[in-house]
Write a protein that binds this DNA or RNA. Structure first.
Lengths: 334, 334
DNA sequence: TGACACACCGAAAAGGTTTTCAGGAACGTA
DNA sequence: TACGTTCCTGAAAACCTTTTCGGTGTGTCA
């Protein structure tokens, strides 16, 4: 199919390109009947404006780049969706590029995006710790999401892990649990530390210690969840709740609880983290978990970016609260 | 940071824009010393060419659109990666748009991509059954991946589910298993039917029937895997292998096998489908599964698309074989 | 020395749109 | 009738790059 240009439309409608342009863009200085004629011609040729040419003039392309290093798309997809929602489909499109954790590939993608004249950039790191800034001398506004930039002059939007940990434990306490363990991932992750801190603070407010005496740091995997649970049950057989640092870990915990014939939530209540649907919804029973609200992060990132085009971006780290999603793995103690 | 244009570079290097352009694009008719001067000037200003202007001239943007309806990105991410690999990072970028299964949103994204003058389109459907064609009168080549188009004049690349089913059962037979059950998803999915057909054919070659007498169609969920396994063990307690139609189902099967104290793979061997890492690698034991080879699908899609720009695209449905990934959930019968 | 080939460089057009500004038509008013 | 307004339309410049083609300078050969 050949492509119609504005000239073709104008010719068919019997007007100049200038008028055609104004008619299609809703400019006021054009007679209603003329506008109708142009619109009719445009749809007849199914004209679609060349955004390259438009972008060349207006210095706006209506695209933003989403630069991620998150291999599985687990975190970037919700952020992408939030951003798309906020922009509105017809106004702005989002370019997703995956650097696969490789700095060279990241530079490549960055320059590809810049030469395509994106209006802004959202950078989604691989893990929720600070990552190297892309630098200050970029021609477009940049927002760091999920993983903050290591340069405090950049604007970063992250999820409030401390609050999330507090949320989880608070819920368990309200369910009447008192012997609450926390099994979580790699201690070198800031997220693990933050969630643990939040959890411990809330415990301390009740005068409680974590069951087993300490937080169980390890790995972000199901098998660590299993191993830690076995140790936990040995050291502390009367535990009545576990807060897992991720849904993966929670699945491992659940597996061993089943194995040892502990009823969930009857004997032990279980809370996960991430609200990763495939893991959480299919578990037996379905898992209560903390959702990081990444769509909201994406939406806000989009709004800030939009506001920054023309104006200026703030700086610092902005934290977003998570929300607790309750399912059947937690219930009040009878 | 202000953006340098080719004019700025040319001025700094003391040449005309024409020469600057030729120097930077590796055209032969420019003296080596001149080229060096221009390149020096370009990097000094860290010039990055405006692809909008370039695209306007060359009628190529170096972008392809990846239009998906696969909410979780489970299938589209590997395809995206394969495509990126094949294109080479610096030549071509991929625009990922998620229609979220909504036809209106799909039309929106389509027109957004077209007005951005993508050079081609890859369409990834939500489920591996045929989906409505985008139509024949598009100005760019389109390739359907994973889910074929319902118009045979389009080119579709899909995974060979029949072969995959055969692969799984063949492996189980080689492990010495004879009482092999197949628990799979929704019977309305072509993929479920195809995998079951392949499995049954391979069984028939050995003179076998599926354990339990029939294929267990149901849902693509862990809980169906659990339910079906309970029924299976009741009806056919001596089953020695299960081929699950997806990794999710396999996880359900595994759960109930544990519950009933059957050893995997000692008593019962288990094969999944999809090679979905999070499910498969963390299972206890890790699951043997069929990988659909989606990266390869993406790579080939990119190559075909590239070849089609200028030439013409083929048509019909092209099937790609999967590959068996063996892990610890299968082993020879002692 | 003159003619010619060759290597290199630059002027200008082209690509499709937006935007500014000047001009024309229609109309009302003196 | 003459003039001022208001409303609408169109010519042209601008955005930045690529590409064609004509031109200049240098070296070679007869």
């Amino acid at each position: 199919m050949e492509r119609a240009t504005l000239r073709d439309v104008a010719r068919l409608a019997g007007v100049s390109v200038a008028t055609a342009s104004k008619a299609l863009n809703g400019q006021p200085q054009v007679r209603a009947s003329t506008r109708a004629r142009v619109e009719q011609a445009a749809s007849q040729l199914n004209f679609s404006p060349n955004t390259l040419a438009r972008g060349l003039i207006t210095q706006r392309t209506g695209t933003v780049g989403l630069l991620t290093s998150d291999l599985e798309g687990r975190f970037s997809i919700p952020i992408l969706m939030g951003a798309e929602d906020a922009f509105g489909t017809d106004r702005t499109s989002v370019f997703l590029c995956d650097a696969r954790g490789d700095t060279i590939r990241e530079r490549h993608h960055l320059s590809a995006l810049l030469s395509r004249r994106v209006d802004g950039l959202i950078v989604v790191g691989a893990r929720p710790d600070s990552r190297p800034s892309l630098g200050r001398d970029l021609p477009v506004p940049v927002i760091y999401a999920y993983a903050p930039s290591d340069d405090p002059r950049d604007l970063s939007l992250v999820s409030d892990n401390e609050g999330g940990g507090r949320l989880a434990v608070d819920h368990l306490i309200r369910c009447g649990r008192r012997r609450i363990a926390h099994i979580t991932g790699d201690a070198s992750y800031g997220a693990a530390q933050d969630r643990a801190r939040g959890a411990q603070q809330r415990l301390a407010e009740e005068g409680l210690e974590p069951a087993g005496g300490e937080v169980w740091f390890g790995m972000w995997s199901e098998s660590w969840g299993r191993g830690a649970t076995r140790m936990l049950l040995e050291r502390c057989p009367d535990v009545d709740a576990v807060f897992a640092g991720s849904d993966e870990i929670a699945r491992g915990v659940l597996d061993v609880l089943h194995e040892q014939r502990r009823d969930v939530p009857g004997d032990v209540a279980l809370v996960g983290y991430d609200n990763w649907n495939i893991l959480v919804a299919n578990a037996r029973p379905p898992l209560t978990t903390v959702d990081m609200n990444l769509e909201q992060l994406g939406r806000v990132a989009a709004q800030r970016l939009f506001a920054a085009i023309g104006g200026t971006l703030g700086s610092g780290i902005e934290k977003f609260p998570g929300k607790l999603i309750t399912r059947e793995s937690t219930a009040p103690l009878r």
